[in-house]
Design a protein around this nucleic acid. Structure first.
Ligand code: FES
Ligand code: FES
Lengths: 136, 136
DNA sequence: TAAAATGATACCATATTAGTATCATTTTGT
DNA sequence: ACAAAATGATACTAATATGGTATCATTTTA
């Protein structure tokens, strides 16, 4: 059970790198060198982040990417949802095999709570907070 | 992001069925008819549950499966862990790219908390509690 | 105006999940 | 005794999701 897949992982690392290098526009090539991740894969990821409004891209000679929002406004949950889809923990598992068909489902309610808890815990983990770990 | 996969799903449903039918031994064929799930797939699942000590199997003519533990002692987390492996949410994502290599990792700590919360929420969801939903 | 960047898109590889098929072994009802 | 009815073991296939490549078009600016 992986919570975080490679694209989310790379996205986080790229965002941290950009965040640390000030507001300056960073080209993909620099990120690829710095993070040592596969070039076309990261490029795809950056394009997605651009479309989703997490990064802003600049084409042409001295182009690249910058954060479209403040680092503290980019949470891990946002990225997980972009690359791994909504948390659908509470989605009906049992296709009405368990729940009474009349009312709400106790199981579903339980799972909704789990979902909320996860989001609640992940929300404060932002690019900002991760960037300030000042690791190597 | 699926929390629960098919084998966990089918396992839960099989266990609920057995639980509801008293302490009686239930053969796989009955479960297959009742739950309308693919025969060889469910058989494999039942074998795993037997090996993991969730079910106890009886070979031969009027054999089948019974719960090896009380229904309230079989939690959804147990089944998820059997079929989908340990919750490794807190596994190192970034291969020391973020954390200081000296001490403990703030990110990892955050993710550990998430993990605990999930387990804490899922633990009280047991075969017993699910079986008593008395759905159809 | 060419170099350096991103955009779009189609493709391939690998891993995981889901499901099948076959045959051996055990038990028990008659 | 023995055949029927069950599980055990195991190897295989199919579908989907994840991870990664490759190519070419477009934009910008030094
Ligand atoms: S049966 Fe679907 S969540 Fe209750
Ligand atoms: S760098 Fe591995 S969890 Fe902190």
């Amino acid at each position: 059970m992986k919570l975080i897949t490679k694209n989310t992982d790379y996205a986080v690392r790229a965002l941290i790198y950009i965040s640390r290098s000030g507001k300056r526009i960073v080209p993909a090539s620099e990120l690829i060198d710095a993070l040592v991740v596969p070039r076309p894969f990261l490029r795809k990821i950056l394009q997605i982040l651009n479309k989703k409004g997490v990064l802003k891209s600049y084409k042409g000679k001295s182009g690249g990417f910058e954060l479209a929002r403040a680092a503290e406004e980019i949470s891990l949950v946002d990225l997980i949802e972009i690359f791994q889809g909504q948390f659908t923990l509470a989605e009906c598992l049992f296709r009405r095999k368990i729940c009474p068909n009349t009312g709400t489902c106790a199981l579903r309610n339980s799972l909704s709570v789990v979902e909320e808890k996860v989001v609640e815990q992940l929300k404060p983990i932002t690019v900002k907070s991760l960037a300030s770990f000042n690791g190597r």
